[in-house]
């Protein structure tokens, strides 16, 4: 998105802090309904982040499918199965939680020490420079539609069959 650099950086920091606090809230809040709404905040921030990185179609799909469908379904599941058992044992901190937090912290530290060491810009600029003229002719959504109906036609049909089978299976399981 063509914004001036200070506004872009400010939006990036704002969305990043929203992501960090929201994902901590998903994991650490004791009541599942609060963590479901916090998940909605995280998904909305990710959708705005996609708009910042020029992927408007994926941003719209994220906003429609994740925030509109999946989050509503999760909130419905939380409200449908809300018992008094959630409030009993949220304060106990077992050994397994400590071990898991140690493992996940070491995973995160190893990832963020790997990221600056990799030379990302050595792998680019091979296919981009000669095709930059026809980039502006058609829009982003048109390009995604053309690629979905030509190159990725078989995975597209397989995804639709998987969605159909999953919906029928969910109805059969939940119906009894």
């Amino acid at each position: 998105m063509d914004l001036p650099a200070p506004i872009h950086d400010f939006l990036l920091v704002f969305l990043g802090s929203g992501l960090i606090l929201g994902s901590l809230g998903v994991v650490l809040l004791p009541n599942p309904i609060y963590s479901a709404f916090s998940l909605g905040l995280v998904l909305f921030c990710i959708s705005l982040f996609y708009i910042l990185s020029n992927s408007y179609f994926v941003a719209a799909a994220q906003l429609l499918i994740y925030v509109g469908a999946i989050n509503v379904l999760i909130i419905f599941a939380v409200m449908f199965m809300n018992g008094s058992e959630y409030y009993k044992g949220f304060s106990l901190w077992t050994v397994g939680d400590g071990v898991t937090s140690m493992v996940c912290t070491s995973l995160f530290i190893s990832l963020i020490t790997t990221i600056p060491d990799t030379s990302w810009y050595g792998i680019i600029w091979t296919t981009k420079s000669n095709q930059i003229l026809e980039q502006d002719l058609i829009s982003n959504s048109q390009q995604i539609g053309i690629h979905l109906s030509t190159d990725f036609f078989l995975p597209f049909e397989l995804i639709s069959i998987i969605l159909l089978v999953a919906l029928i299976g969910a109805i059969v399981i939940a119906r009894q």
Binding site: V58, A61, Q62, I65, Y66, A69, I70, L73, I74, F76, A77, M81, I159, I162, L163, A166, L167, G169, A170, I171, I173, A174
Partner: peptide
């Protein structure tokens, strides 16, 4: 996103 939608349909049904 489509796989996540399928998973979010199956998961609450099993739960």
């Amino acid at each position: 996103i489509a796989i996540a939608a399928a998973e979010a349909a199956i998961g609450p049904a099993i739960i």
